[in-house]
């Protein structure tokens, strides 16, 4: 039994070990941190000190005083100010909007790539991943310029708006700028899984549907769309989850209106030096995202019945 699975074990333990060390353990450390107090100069309040004479670690936590080291206070803080909840909701909203726009834009593109002939297809896939060849921050800065007050885009748009009698707009430092850039950054992550899925579709199913009386619209909704759902789910997860926690884009483009939960978490760890509260925010964000994914799976299963 063991012998037969030896090969399997040998191949799977390195990634397992890797995930254990660099994901599971840090996550556990963070969970513990969320119940502790911040240290005097950032970090966490130590649980032990080094005895100078012996050089040995002396644990300070005892049965009597553990309340001075562990607390639920950090979680309670979340409820004290509704601004946190609002920020969560807003982040979910931006990430959700980004996912939806990506889906709407990526679907026709992925479909087109999947239907082109082999040579064109390879070229188009290459073009989709081409932006990855430049640095992420460079791409975000490029949007600062594009959406800035002196760019051609801004000037032309405002001129057109002027013709319609609408006052000139400023695009930078706004939720609009954040979502535009989030869509731009995440679009390939939606296109690629959708393409991988659509490319495998059996075209004879569409012929069969048409033969049996389905018009173009019905062929899409009854055949192509349901069969592409695994690709849609994969793409949505690859866009929604990173978009939810992102801080660089709102940092640079969001201004005060456009900040997201990622900015707050980053702020807790860096500027405010409040690791415990930062941990709480991270954990709650993860739980929210997991809950949402679970809900989506439940709805998906129920609707496919």
């Amino acid at each position: 039994m063991f012998k037969r699975n030896l090969g399997k074990w040998l191949i799977t333990w390195p990634p397992t070990l890797y995930l254990l060390i660099f994901f599971a353990i840090p996550a556990l450390i963070m969970v513990v941190a969320s119940f502790r107090f911040p240290g005097d100069y950032g970090g966490l309040l130590p649980l032990y000190h080094i005895d100078e004479a012996t050089g040995r670690a002396v644990i300070e936590v005892t049965r009597e005083n553990w309340r001075d080291y562990f607390t639920l206070e950090n979680y309670a803080r979340l409820t004290e100010d509704s601004v946190y909840l609002q920020l969560f909701i807003k982040s979910f909203y931006y990430a959700g909007l980004t996912t939806l726009i990506c889906l709407i834009m990526a679907y026709p593109l992925a479909w087109l790539i999947a239907r082109s002939n082999q040579k064109v297809r390879d070229l188009l896939v290459l073009l989709v991943i081409l932006p990855f060849w430049s640095n992420f921050l460079v791409r975000v800065y490029a949007w600062m310029i594009i959406l800035g007050p002196n760019s051609a885009f801004t000037k032309i748009t405002n001129m057109l708006l002027g013709l319609l009698g609408i006052a000139p707009q400023s695009f930078m430092f706004s939720p609009f700028a954040v979502v535009v850039c989030l869509v731009y950054v995440h679009l390939p992550f939606m296109v690629l899984p959708l393409y991988a899925n659509l490319e495998k579709h059996d075209m004879s199913l569409l012929d069969a549907a048409q033969d049996l009386g389905a018009n173009a619209w019905q062929r899409f909704w009854k055949v192509t769309w349901p069969l592409s759902l695994p690709g849609v789910y994969a793409g949505a997860a690859l866009v929604f989850i990173p978009a939810l926690g992102i801080f660089a884009v709102p940092d640079l483009l969001g201004g005060t209106d456009g900040i997201m939960i990622g900015n707050l978490i980053k702020q807790q760890f860096l500027e405010s030096r409040d690791w415990p509260f930062g941990s709480v925010l991270s954990i709650v964000l993860t739980l929210f995202a997991l809950g949402l994914a679970g809900l989506a799976a439940l709805i998906g299963r129920a609707s496919s019945r």
């Binding site: 059996d202 004879s204 199913l205 012929d207 069969a208 549907a209 048409q210 033969d211 049996l212 009386g213 389905a214 018009n215 009854k222 055949v223 349901p226 069969l227």
Partner: peptide, 20 residues
Amino acid sequence: VPPEKRPVHTVFQSYALFPH
């Protein structure tokens, strides 16, 4: 007359049953 409007149905060589 497009295929969807013809009173002609086909049993395809590969069956083409809808897997979902």
